[in-house]
Amino acid sequence: MSRLLSSLRDGKGFDIVLVAVPLAFLLVFSGLPLIYNVVMSFQAVDMFSLGTFNRPWVGFKNYVDVFSLPATWPIMRNTVIFVVCSIAGQFVIGFALALFFARGFPGSSYIRGLFLASWVMPGLVVGAMWNWILAGDFGVLNYALRSLGIISENIFWASNPAWSLWAVIVANIWLGISFNMILLSVGLAAIPRDLYEAAALDGANGLQKFWTITLPMMRSTIGAVISLGLIFTLQQFDLFASITSGGPANSSNVAQYWAWEMSFRQYDFAKGATISVVMIAVVMIASVIYVRSTRHEVRG
């Protein structure tokens, strides 16, 4: 008994406890709901069978149903546009800012810290703020574009089907820039200065240094930032809820918001579960590609 106790205090037992606690937490709060969700996507679920686990098994019927809905393909298309454009915008602007602040002018680290303000704000608050900016009749964006002569009359960003998805994308890019910038700044700071000095002496100009030193040395950071971006973007819910609610007419609806709508608006829990399982599969494939691409990681 005392042996067991001492092992728990200082030994293998301690290591096992350290690993077991988070594992148990993950299992209870992530693993089980995930499995429950997957199981539900193969069952017929209605309001009356919601309380039991033993529901009629329907195989892939839910999947067939979901993919035969007329709304499915436009929503999948929206999701792809949302993910690709959000990540591209966040990454390019975030990287540019990271490079800018890496120059280390007076106050650069302080100002860089201020950028985190967008990241710490709750999505609903960001959504409310962008609602004001994008507002059709009194929004500052319309005012600015009109004053610059780019548009001649107000655009109703959130309620015009041609613009509604882009309204959310812009807000999401704004929300994600600082996170991208901070992670990329860390990656930039990890590149030894003398590599740039050696490259400068070897005859590289600024652009050549970026292509031959910065980018290859940032490969793993960039991979991590983009995969995290994929995860965060596919989780983005608050902005849809507060800016467009997926409308009008599903023109700004995306898979994650649709899954919630299915389950908690239309009470079709099976289809909601099915959509989220499809999303899980997509994320898993993306993660595998990411892990494989960083396996042959080069480190000095």
Partner: peptide, 20 residues
């Protein structure tokens, strides 16, 4: 002149080899 136009080569204490 910037370093790249001076046509001198330098061997660094850390070697500064390109790790990739």
């Amino acid at each position: 002149l910037p370093p790249r136009k001076r046509d001198v080569a330098m061997v660094f204490q850390s070697y500064a080899l390109y790790p990739h």
